[in-house]
Amino acid sequence: MQITSRVLIVDDEAEFSETLAKIFKRREIDVDTANGCLMAIEKLKASEFDVIIMDVSMPGIDGIQCLGMVKQQWPETEVIILTGHASVTSGIQGMQGGAFDYCLKPIDFGELLEKIELACEKVQINRGR
């Protein structure tokens, strides 16, 4: 299935975001990156995104806090939490905060793409597209 939706990657590790973005672009996914929560909020205000891939550990506002802010203002945007430090607590916190799903680093790209696809499908149904 072709994903025609917009994806925003939020991660303070620029190298990681850019690599992921390149892979997405190769699969013709419309993708943008943000190096932290505040930049992500700015980008969300400027244009509509369907899915956000959000790293948990970021300096300043962490991924779980940022998730709360995003879901409050853009409840229909789905967030997939990403982390290199798996923790049961952060996993549950993310899901309780309204995350669509949770992915561990190092990433299984197939798995991540599948989750993005499902999240996009949900967003599009909710938005009545």
Partner: peptide, 20 residues
């Protein structure tokens, strides 16, 4: 430990989804 932590986390997330 990454295996243990990763699996326990993924398991908790999936069971959270079930309850949800």
């Amino acid at each position: 430990m990454s295996f243990v932590r990763g699996h326990c986390t993924a398991l908790s997330v999936n069971i959270y989804k079930m309850t949800h």
